[in-house]
């Protein structure tokens, strides 16, 4: 059969599917799934990538011992990275900065935005602890020069210093800077910068694969009825409802 006719036939099949949805039974589906070969090593790598990126160093170590999967990054660096992240999360920003500089002095020297956000977080912590004098001094000495270099930093600085003007910060328009989520935001920014400096992806691959799965299912929903995965945590195939 010529290529032309193959194309025509496939188009017709898709056309047919579009009008009435094709039904795929659990049997057929599982048979198809079994035909797909996924190497165990690849699965392990995927899990390892997740553990390493998210910083679960003990789990990564266990996985390596049990499966022989080599992490794509020196596990010791994960401990350092997690220490930095934790320091920011606990509000010990100065400590975090020193740790990053020990890890790689280039990171903060070449990343003005991250450096500013860390200094800003330091200021927030001073304000949180009621050290008004110290906070003002710090803002003047450390942050104001950065604001002069960059307009958007200046705006962020103004917002942060505004915290001092309010008696009741829980009720002020910039109060969310004192929220724990601000610490988490800064921590994840540092985490990402360290990963990038180590030539590592800043996001694990697993979540994007799951997103792709959801996208693929919704594409397929338009064309067919098939055993769907509704609960991602268990990944059980639901029977198709016709």
């Amino acid at each position: 059969m010529s290529l032309f006719w193959i194309v025509i036939r496939q188009l017709a099949e898709i056309e047919a599917m579009a009008t009435s949805k094709k039904v795929i039974t659990r049997e057929e589906w599982e048979k198809k799934l079994n035909d797909v070969m996924i190497r165990k090593e690849d699965m392990n790598k995927l899990v390892m990538n997740f553990l390493v990126t998210e910083g679960y160093v003990d789990a990564a170590e266990k996985l390596r011992m049990e499966s022989g999967t080599e992490p794509d990054i020196d596990l010791a660096t994960i401990t350092d990275r997690m220490a930095v992240k934790k320091a920011v999360q606990c509000g010990n920003v100065e400590d975090a900065i020193e740790k990053v500089n020990d890890l790689n002095p280039e990171i903060l020297d070449t990343n003005p935005q991250l450096f500013f956000h860390l200094q800003q977080q330091r200021l927030i912590e001073l304000i949180r602890n009621g050290k008004v004098e110290e906070a003002l001094e710090f803002a003047q000495e450390e942050l104001a020069p950065r604001g002069e270099e960059n307009q958007s930093f200046l705006e962020e600085l103004e917002k942060t210093v505004a915290l001092l003007a309010f008696e009741d910060v829980s009720n002020c328009p910039v109060g969310d800077l004192l929220d724990i989520s601000q610490r988490l935001k800064t921590a994840s920014e540092v985490n990402a910068a360290i990963l990038t400096s180590q030539n590592h992806e800043k996001d694990p691959k697993l979540p994007s694969l799951l997103k792709m799965l959801i996208w693929a299912q919704s594409q397929l929903d338009e064309k067919a009825v098939y055993p769907r995965i509704n609960d991602l945590s268990t990944a059980t195939l639901e029977d198709p409802t016709v």
């Binding site: 008004v132 004098e133 003002l136 001094e137 003047q140 000495e141 103004e158 210093v161 505004a162 001092l164 003007a165």
Partner: peptide
Amino acid sequence: MPTATSTTATATSANTST
């Protein structure tokens, strides 16, 4: 930013930083 406080802060910060 309250002006009065910031003026004093400049003075102190200059001293401590030097």
